[in-house]
């Protein structure tokens, strides 16, 4: 053991530590600031992404196969349930189409060209998930060439799941909404209650033990009930308005008793993601 702590080894160990810290702080700074990582980093990510596609293909294929078997087993019950919904859906679709057309016309008359709700969608496959308990991140198969930009919101079929944090040419990293790290910037959301009144706020955290999104520091006197719908509010930049987030699970006083905190049940299942949609405004 005397040999282990010899002078030379100690110096080497310290140099390695310094290099490690340096790399770490530089990369965290880049992550927080620039819109895209440096070209070298992008290139490395694209190469790794290409190799990953080859490895991920059979694994995802296997998942697809098992999913289809379980789907097949549930087909009959599902079909019964869906048949009932189809009739109502046709009605709702026609209603929505008329409303959209009318909305467009009215907007034209008001000379409002760009609305907060407008967005185009880029659909991407989920390549892989970061095998770490600290970073809830996904790598998706679309990048700058498909028009993805940093900080764009990402959705699964059922609702909001996170935002883009790093864009490369052919793939990009998505930070899930369940990430609680302090460096993650948060979504602006809006709760609409049954009377049609709205409460604005931002996502302030994620309650891991109950799998709920937290919206803190709410001082509004509007009554919010369990089950009220939550959407993105479109305030403050890249997120369009009207992306579905989830429903209110409970409302409680915060630790100081001054404001209330709303807990929201996310609509999307954050652990079962194969295809996601990036929304660009």
């Amino acid at each position: 053991m005397q040999k282990f702590f010899s002078n030379r080894k100690l110096v080497i160990a310290i140099i390695i530590l310094i290099i490690s810290f340096g790399l770490m702080s530089v990369s965290v700074a880049i992550r927080d600031r620039k819109s895209t990582p440096p070209l070298v980093q992008q290139f490395g990510n694209d190469v790794a992404g290409a190799v990953d596609r080859v490895v991920a293909l059979p694994v995802n294929g296997l998942q697809g196969a098992t999913n289809s078997v379980s789907d097949l087993l549930n087909t009959y019950q599902e079909n019964q349930k869906l048949k009932k919904q189809v009739d109502q859906l046709a009605q709702a679709k026609v209603n929505a189409q008329t409303a959209t057309a009318e909305n467009k016309q009215l907007r034209k008359e008001l000379k409002l060209n760009k609305a907060l709700t407008d967005y185009t969608a880029v659909t991407a496959n989920v390549l892989t998930r970061t095998p770490s308990s600290w970073m809830n991140q996904l790598v998706i198969s679309k990048g700058a060439t498909a028009g993805v930009k940093k900080n764009m919101p990402v959705m699964s079929q059922s609702g909001l799941i996170g935002r883009v944090v790093e864009v490369n040419q052919t793939n990009s990293k998505v930070e899930l909404i369940s990430n609680t790290s302090s460096s993650a910037d948060k979504f602006a959301i809006q709760i609409t209650n049954s009377a049609g009144k709205t409460v604005n706020g931002i996502v302030t955290g994620f309650d891991k033990s109950d799998n709920l999104i937290e919206m803190g520091s709410v001082t509004s006197s509007v009554k919010i009930k369990k089950g009220d719908k939550v959407i993105t509010s479109g305030l403050g930049g890249l997120t369009p308005k009207g992306l579905y987030v989830g429903t209110v699970a409970k409302v409680k006083q915060d630790d100081y008793g001054l404001a209330s905190e709303v807990e929201i049940k996310p609509a999307a299942d954050l652990t079962d993601l194969t295809v996601v949609t990036v929304a660009e405004q």
Binding site: S20, M24, S27, D52
Partner: peptide
């Protein structure tokens, strides 16, 4: 290095 690069984007952790 590849792990840091591709999965996390924070260098110098798994690398060491």
């Amino acid at each position: 290095l590849v792990f840091d690069w591709f999965y996390t984007g924070v260098f110098g952790v798994y690398l060491i």
